[in-house]
Simulated assay, not measured.
Amino acid sequence: MPGRLQNRVALITGAGSGIGLESSILFASEGAHVLLVDLNLAAAERVAALIQERYPNVKAKATKADVGKEADIKAAVDLAVESFGRLDVMFNNAGIMHPEDDNALNTEEKIWDLTMQINLKGVWWGCKYAIQAMRKNPTDESKGLHVGGSIINTASFVALLGAATPQLAYTASKGAVLAMTRELAMVHAREGIRLNSICPGPLKTPLLMDFLNTAEKRDRRMVHLPMGRFGEAVEIAKGALFLASDESSYVTGTDFKVDGGLSSCYVTATGEPALAPPTSLA
């Protein structure tokens, strides 16, 4: 039985760890050829090698890129098309949460600018060059390939809720990702190019765990999580797979929440965790 992304071509940024790593493996397991993009080339190469070993019928290639540099993103998109013939899925996933990101009084301009450069400009450039590539996609019904494509942008639950523990630049950048994604989705809907944001809740990934570097910080978050646990990167990857596949063919312009109910919670749930976390694909 063909996979949900059979013969599709996907480019994933931040593919060397966390959500990007899990998504790269999951997309490949569903038949996609994957270009893994990361600033840490060695990490991306390890994931690409794992994919090739585990799924020999698909192709995986790693490349180094700084998503805060437009030329790097353009080169990555060009490489995907050159290597695999087209681009069907663009997952703008890479981002930062700077440890010195604070409130309006304490956040330095350089931290604000760096966060916007990567989390917002990087997503804008990823959309820009993916759209250009997807416009050129030929239609090949015999292979189940369609004109257009799917662009997925990683936002965050903090784009929907205010946080009493401030990370102002990060929150502002993710809110902007939501607004930008909605507008681009409307502009390009008639071209068959779908754009959606995915809004993860707090995850047990290095990005957040390095930020929540004390038990006190972690416990302060944990008490608000309805399921009683942090999410896992593989759970976000499964949401991204839905948005990448034809199962979401009538879905565009959405803020897709994968947050364990956090953004819908008023009174914190009590009791033991309802669900055990899934196993990583790595």
Rank of each mutant, 00 (worst) to 15 (best):
L105C: 03
G175E: 10
A28M: 06
K217S: 13
R221H: 13
P166T: 08
L114T: 15
T254I: 14
A172W: 08
T214L: 10
K110D: 02
A62F: 03
E272K: 15
N153M: 14
A10D: 00
M227Q: 10
V67C: 13
E22A: 04
F230A: 03
G201M: 04
V177N: 10
N137W: 03
S173T: 04
L168C: 14
I198V: 07
W112P: 14
N153P: 12
G122Y: 07
A60E: 08
D88Y: 08
N196T: 04
A28K: 02
L145W: 12
E272P: 09
L21D: 08
S248H: 08
V123K: 08
G228E: 07
V177C: 10
V177I: 13
E183W: 09
A42L: 07
T13E: 00
A133F: 10
P226N: 09
A164C: 01
D246Y: 00
R218C: 01
Q132C: 00
A237D: 06
N57M: 06
N196A: 05
D259L: 07
Q52G: 10
L120G: 00
Y170E: 06
G175H: 12
A42G: 09
L105A: 12
G126Q: 06
T205M: 13
G201V: 09
L168V: 10
V9H: 03
A215F: 00
T181M: 08
R218W: 00
A60I: 12
R218V: 14
G261N: 14
G162W: 12
G231L: 06
I118D: 04
P278Y: 12
E216I: 08
G68M: 10
G149C: 12
D259P: 04
G162L: 14
V123H: 09
P273Q: 11
V267G: 05
L243I: 01
G228L: 09
H98C: 10
P273S: 11
L5V: 01
V251F: 11
P56S: 04
L41D: 01
G162R: 10
A176F: 10
D246I: 04
C127Y: 03
V67Q: 04
D101N: 11
D246F: 01
M1F: 01
K238Q: 11
A169P: 07
E191H: 05
F84M: 11
S23L: 02
K257V: 15
C127A: 12
L145V: 13
D66E: 15
K174E: 08
G253W: 06
V187R: 09
A75N: 08
L79A: 14
L120R: 08
E191W: 04
S142M: 07
S245R: 01
K110S: 15
A44L: 06
Y250E: 04
K128I: 06
